[in-house]
Design a protein around this nucleic acid. Structure first.
Lengths: 335, 335
DNA sequence: TTGAAAGCGCTAACAT
DNA sequence: ATGTTAGCGCTTTCAA
């Protein structure tokens, strides 16, 4: 049997509410020093712990915030790891715990959506993409029934309805391109995934516009579609290794590393034969022997900010529709 | 105002308990088809969701399991990412959610320990190391007050008290050493961290014993202590690059990558001048241009198993003191 | 087939 | 300074 406030009260011949008041209530309340001492002593002795579930029921607050992501957290997803880390710090600051919503393939968006509003979490961070049906469902709910809707902050991709935290994609790409131009590159390629992601669209657009604005001709630009984050196929594009040396900008870091690895296996020298840049700044530089030139988006900071905003939402304050985090150019040895 | 069973009952002129019974109780109960239909319809209309907190209070079960780790989840810790992934899968299987316990430096073990037994989680997975005061506290509680103690399964390092899931460290190292011997190496080094970790001790012991058993002389063996996972300092040991080519076995993957990177910067060829092996098998091979020779411990599987065991504990069954997961040799291009 | 009532453990307003 | 009471939303006997 667990020890409750009632147990203590019975043992001490006090009322349960007195016990509760001493243990949790306003510490500067009128209570005799003697009873206070007795209660505290008994609590210590019996190893009493107030039940958080009962408290939550009473308060209508659990002090738990949820994180929903469509993919599971595994080592292949540094992005999620980074986000999780940032959220953890912010949660610690706000005294919140973090509940990972386990997205199961076999559950419909509706089922997951419902499980999100069963009272166990006070608010939710979603790692969103426009395609995710759950994100759509959340947005719908925020529009139609805002008074019942659970507080949500999205991270990564802009959304027309949900408040979101993203990074300065365009600015980051401009930094990258200017560095490439400064180093004298004259031919450029952009590696993009076959699926649509609005932040990647921004990167691509900025890439093209910056180059054109600098006087680079359209026929010096190359668009190559790859399978997600695997860049092996890109090398089969024979325009990549002919003529002048080409600077390949990959849509994210993982695809850049994939390309780097493929180059090593085919004895293509980087940056001798090919220059490579990434985007995100996610990988620990100690893990690779090459230091990738990339844009550091500090996703952990973004996640931390998202939690700050969520706490504001929970306490009824308004938050900006879109928050853009600063980005930083990371130099290395791949260009 | 949130919609509760009471709201529905009032609206329909039924009792709250009837509503509850229809919505959650035994589906094959004697209830008129008409009322059932009315209740379900109203629930749908008003978008009713049973409150999970109230349910938990009632049942004494939250269907949430906790994960405690001393370090926070960031990109530098692939180990945690892997464990998280494995737990997620297992949790989904068992219909449990996952609560990350945010360990704050400024909180004592006692405070954290208490926050773990406030009723919000049914059980706990700890990523343990003998040094962690919280792990000691949990073990103490399991010994002294087993009836109140919260169900715990540890992962990674053997523990005298808590049931634990680890991998076959010794066997893994034997596989590695045999491969090195097969390839004709005659000089060997082991890179170890300055702190004690019993699984690393096993690896080191197995490394030494296997080599000695194969007839390698003691003076062909080198022990080098490094600063955690940073292997830069190791290259300053001048015994490493003199004489015959040395095979360096690092205590884990991250230190191996660190060494690899240092070699690249110093223009030391791997495996030309130096052979390198790791341990853990954590890194996505697509992320590096080199493929490290290592031992794959499948930590995600271990985490998944730990959750399975925890569920057994929670339902009152006994579990083995120690579960060892199989390991697999991963070949690459660094030896 | 349905309703009334108790109780999970806690907090807080109100009474004494 | 302390006790009484109500109630958070739910499940589950027991009664009708």
């Amino acid at each position: 049997m667990p020890v409750t406030a009632k147990t203590l009260a019975l043992k001490l011949g006090l009322s349960q509410s007195t016990v509760s008041r001493i243990l949790n209530g306003d510490p500067r309340q009128r209570i005799s020093d003697e009873t206070r001492a007795r209660v505290l002593e008994a609590a210590r002795l019996l190893d009493y712990r107030p039940n958080a579930v009962a408290r939550s029921l009473r308060h209508g607050r659990t002090n738990i915030i949820g994180l929903y992501t469509r993919t599971t957290y595994d080592v292949r997803n540094h992005f999620l790891a980074e986000i999780l880390g940032g959220m953890q710090h912010a949660c610690a600051r706000h005294g919140q715990d973090l509940l990972l919503q386990t997205a199961r393939r076999d559950k419909s968006a509706e089922v997951i959506f419902n499980s999100l509003r069963d009272g166990r979490i006070d608010g939710l961070i979603v790692h969103n993409s426009q395609e995710d049906p759950l994100v759509q469902r959340l947005a719908h709910s925020a529009l139609v029934r805002p008074e019942t809707a659970i507080p949500v902050v999205a991270i990564a991709d802009p959304d027309p309805v949900l408040p979101v935290v993203t990074c300065e994609d365009s600015l980051g790409m401009e930094l990258l391109v200017h560095e490439l131009l400064r180093r004298g590159y004259t031919r450029f390629a952009f590696l993009e995934p076959q699926f649509k992601l609005s932040s990647v669209e921004s990167r691509k657009l900025a890439w093209k516009n910056t180059l054109l604005a600098a006087g680079v001709l359209e026929n010096a630009l190359l668009n190559i579609e790859i399978d997600g984050e695997s860049a092996e196929s890109a090398l089969r594009d024979d325009r990549l290794l002919t003529g002048e040396r080409c600077a390949v900008s990959c849509w994210n870091d993982q695809s850049a590393y994939s390309l780097l690895s493929t180059c090593f296996r085919h004895a293509i020298s980087v940056p001798g034969d090919l220059a490579i840049t990434g985007f995100d700044g996610l990988l620990d530089p100690r893990l690779t022997d090459r230091r990738l030139v990339t844009v550091d988006c500090r996703w952990a900071d973004a996640a931390s900010t998202a939690v700050d905003l969520l706490m504001q939402l929970i306490s009824g304050e308004a938050v900006p529709e879109e928050t853009r985090m600063p980005v930083f150019l990371t130099l290395g040895d791949t260009i």
